[in-house]
Design a protein around this nucleic acid. Structure first.
Lengths: 195, 195
DNA sequence: GTATAATGACTGACCGGTCAGTATAAATAT
DNA sequence: ATATTTATACTGACCGGTCAGTCATTATAC
């Protein structure tokens, strides 16, 4: 009796992640995922119910990692701005190899009908909420310490995520921007207005 | 029926836009687009080479409208911050009915192979550059007038776009944030840091 | 009458998911 | 120890539904 190993599940997950980063969900062929993972196509279905399930597995895994970083940083004895800075840089490091990741984590905004979007909303949105909450907590504590202005913490968290997005985008050169991530964070902290 | 009318092309484009907003590119069936446009499927192929071509038509159309708004506002005699505020609100108005739009305009970040992404990069990225440039121009003039800090204009433009994204997201309640768009703009201008 | 716009039934490639069969590790018997 | 049985992980050829794109036919403008 052999056992389904967690290691193999992980291997498939990583393979799927790589392929999805390259091609996006819809252009990802399970055949390819299997090939990259070094297993047969059928094996994928032993570990994941279907294609959406595999995809959701990736998202949960990614958001889990992102949240873990926040939780870890929150323990450190540092000011809220410093903690956000930490999170920001550790995230940058984590996905420097796979910038495409950023679009996986953000929720799709399609309306009702589309199968995968519906499942996504039902199953992954709670995870995204966790991520936003984790950041919002840091912001909230920063406001208490009078390090931040009295902004809406959850909106600030969302803005932080989008600032991160700017940073990632500006760190590739698809958009002809090419600046260090640092500067995007800077705009998030200080805005662009004088005074 | 003498000439292929521009009006009909437009009708198809609008129909496609509506369906793509609802389902996303890959779940969009040309059959449905045709139905919504009130034409037969074959007719779509008289006006657009293939599905990607139709999609790219939508994107160009949207970015064209976005750039037009910026150009228009730029003519008005107002300070740079005020102009950005104008653009922001007119954009919000323009897509209040279709929040999903926001994800169409942003470039996909997939790597080489995927057909549509490749065409996107080749054909639409220049349009996105135009959009970024238009905003960056306003920022630049604001810096000249000492209304803005000395930030990198193109990065500021990108940040502006992502702030807009935050606003749109926070204006739906998928993420449990629900604030007025105004506040997201506020964070973009003033940052979240105290002082 | 003729050129062209419009139609929608049709086709064929494609791919997610299945399943009958195989390989192999553990359990058990001798 | 070693043979035999049992359990199950794994395989990959195959199937069936789907849908982008085609084209023979029809409708219409001039």
């Amino acid at each position: 009796m052999r056992k389904k190993s967690i290691a193999k599940r992980d291997k498939i997950l990583r393979a799927a992640f790589a392929v999805v980063c390259e091609k996006g969900y819809y252009e990802t062929r399970l055949e390819d995922v299997a090939k990259v993972a070094g297993v047969a196509k059928g094996t994928v279905y032993l570990y994941f119910k279907d294609k959406p399930d595999l995809y959701l597995g990736i998202i949960r895994w990614l958001i889990g990692k992102a949240v873990a970083i926040v939780e870890e940083v929150k323990k450190e004895p540092a000011s809220a701005p410093e903690q956000l800075r930490q999170v920001f840089h550790r995230w940058i490091d984590a996905l420097s190899s796979q910038p495409a990741t950023i679009d996986l984590v953000f929720p799709e905004m399609r309306e009702e009908r589309c199968e995968i979007a519906r499942r996504f909303r039902r199953e992954v949105l709670p995870e995204v909420h966790r991520l936003i909450k984790a950041i919002a907590d840091v912001v909230r504590s920063g406001i208490r310490q009078a390090e931040f202005r009295r902004v809406e913490p959850r909106l600030a968290a969302l803005s932080f995520l989008n600032a991160f997005r700017s940073a990632v985008l500006a760190n590739t050169n698809w958009l002809g921007v090419r600046t260090s991530p640092q500067r995007a964070l800077d705009i998030f902290f200080y805005g662009i207005n004088k005074d």
